[in-house]
């Protein structure tokens, strides 16, 4: 006689006989099911022992997951099967209680709040008003440390970069870019000298420097002197969401943003011709100094990067 037929202490019968069909296991062959479950428990436990061993000898990472995952999975399957096939199959029924209370109870509850509360507040309107005002002021007062302390105000920082008149353009290693460095169809990411390893230099000042052949280039009005010897510099910060526009297709003459595929026409003021970017990439005015180094004439003439409220 196996365990499951033996209901010595049944879950309160409540009028059901111990041999009631609802208390019988669902399995057709409980003994077989029990053996299978026992097998899953044994193998599962062995796998967990295996996990301890694998951990101990510092085995490959996948062995840890395989032993622990397999062990837990088998124990879980066995436990589910135990509940599903060997425990009372039911079904059983439970009555729902109506959640709502009687009319009288509800009225008593509402009366307590409305009458007591109402009478107190109505009679002491001044106090209620003062307390409300005090709490309101506290809310505002709490905003100062909770919000204002979090960071500085933007002020003008979003409008400027670290490019100044005469700033040398350097690559990531700090090497100044010489007019002879780039061949036509080349690209390099440049920073204002000394800023290449700062957070701001990386995030705000980053600029792509390209060398293109002059024939294909449409010079924008007012930018006649900005691109000496075919050197053109655009902000690397996408005007859509600020990703670095590092993808240059030199035959199509497109700068593409790898995040959302905005495409900027390099030969025509980096005006976007596809994708979600709303504005051209700002162009950095360049000149070549007497020693042949690439330097900036001045800062960008507009804020770089994505749009924001204060930007005109």
């Amino acid at each position: 006689m196996s365990e499951h037929d033996d209901h010595r202490t049944p879950v309160s019968l409540n009028g059901l006989a111990a041999n009631d069909p609802h208390f019988q296991p669902a399995a057709r062959n409980p003994l077989l099911v029990e053996r299978v479950i026992a097998l899953t428990f044994v193998v599962g436990t062995l796998l967990l022992v295996g996990f301890v061993y694998c951990f101990w000898v510092n085995a490959e990472p996948w062995t840890l997951g395989a032993t622990m995952g397999g062990g837990l999975f088998l124990l879980g399957v066995g436990l589910v099967a135990w509940g599903k096939y060997l425990m009372p199959k039911g079904p059983f029924v439970e009555e729902r209680h109506v959640l709502a209370n009687s009319e009288a109870d509800r009225n008593a509850f509402a009366a307590a709040i409305v009458e007591r509360g109402g009478s107190v507040v109505k009679r002491r309107r001044l106090l209620a008003g003062l307390l409300g005002g005090g709490l309101g002021v506290f809310t505002i007062a709490a905003m100062f440390p909770l919000l204002r302390s979090l960071g500085p105000l933007p002020k003008g920082t979003l409008f400027h970069t670290d490019w100044r008149s005469g700033t040398y353009a350097v690559d990531i290693t700090g090497r100044r870019v010489h007019v002879g460095d780039l061949a036509v169809g080349s690209i390099v990411t440049v920073y204002p000298e000394g800023k290449q390893e700062t957070d701001r230099g990386q995030a705000v000042d980053q600029t792509v420097l390209l060398r293109i052949s002059n024939e294909a280039f449409t010079t924008q009005k007012g930018r006649e002197t900005w691109g000496p010897h075919g050197y053109i510099a655009y902000s690397k910060v996408c005007t859509h969401l600020g990703c670095p526009v590092g993808l240059y297709e030199q035959q199509l003459q497109l700068l593409v943003c790898p995040c959302h595929q905005s495409m900027f026409d390099v030969t025509n003021g980096a005006i976007p011709n596809f994708g979600p970017a709303p504005r051209p990439l700002p162009q950095l005015p360049l000149y070549v100094d007497a020693s042949g180094y690439i330097r900036s004439q001045k800062d960008y003439d507009q804020p770089v990067g994505p749009g924001f409220w204060e930007r005109s």
Binding site: G180, A183, S186, Y248, E249, Q250, Q251
Partner: peptide, 12 residues
């Protein structure tokens, strides 16, 4: 050499 659409990386 920058084949096709790939940019050339030269002196930089």
């Amino acid at each position: 050499t920058g084949p096709g659409n790939m940019p050339r990386f030269t002196g930089n």
